[in-house]
């Protein structure tokens, strides 16, 4: 479970808050959409949850551990359990889909026999199994997003964070991506993603609406 308690985050010399007194709780396995206009603080919140930033005030606790008090090594260890999908996703364009998905496992020193199995599962869940040998550079935006999701999933994270994964996707592509995210959530992974407007959904989902760094609305819709 992740708990944010009265979190402030300020940047720069003008001390303008990107997040202002944000208190939220994210139970395990829940899927949450952080919505709001540009500059509402969605990406900052995701970066705080990923341990890439520390709060200016307040605490962020991950299973009872205050992230800002963790040592560098412990924070690195924590990041192993966090899947991060950036916008645009960083991919090795001249590698094929399979090699891209397997990359985090190879970096972590996982044996090849386990890698093959996990990569296959991740590609099936994201509908990439037919694109196995395609070069990442030749994929559509939607396919690239799903590839980034598969790559984040393959490491079996406890928390999956995606920064605006639906950006510039049409409805069909968004629905496919949403389906993949929901599958991850059903597998027990806490999924938190940002979107400027809440995307199309089949199942009810929690939506936290941010405005100027504050929580404007927190409801299951």
């Amino acid at each position: 479970m992740i708990v944010l308690d009265a979190v402030d985050k300020v940047y720069g010399q003008d001390r303008k808050p990107a997040l202002d007194q944000v208190s939220l709780t994210f139970p395990d396995g829940e899927m949450t959409c952080l919505s709001g206009p540009a500059g509402a603080g969605k990406t900052t919140l995701l970066r705080l949850l990923a341990g890439m930033e520390t709060p200016s005030r307040g605490t962020v606790t991950f299973n009872g551990q205050d992230i800002s008090r963790l040592s560098g090594t412990a924070r690195k260890g924590l990041r192993q359990h966090v899947g991060w999908v950036s916008r645009p996703p960083f991919l090795v364009s001249y590698w094929n889909v399979e090699a891209n998905v397997a990359y985090p496992l190879r970096l972590s020193g996982v044996p090849e026999s386990i890698i093959t199995q996990r990569v296959r599962t991740a590609m099936q869940r994201t509908g990439l199994d037919t694109l196995r040998t395609r070069r990442a550079g030749t994929l559509t935006i939607s396919e690239r997003q799903r590839l980034a999701l598969a790559r984040a999933f393959v490491n079996r994270p406890g928390l999956l964070l995606a920064d605006d994964p639906f950006f510039s996707l049409d409805d069909t592509e968004s629905a496919r991506l949403m389906e993949a995210l929901q599958l991850f959530s059903l597998a027990g992974i806490t999924v938190i993603f940002s979107a400027s407007t809440a995307p199309f959904r089949v199942h009810p989902m929690r939506e936290v609406r941010l405005q100027k760094g504050r929580v404007q609305q927190d409801a299951v819709t």
Binding site: V82, W84, S86, V92, Y103, L107
Partner: peptide
């Protein structure tokens, strides 16, 4: 850079 974005040390 991809390795770095994936949390590689």
């Amino acid at each position: 850079l991809v390795a770095r974005s994936l949390g590689a040390t």
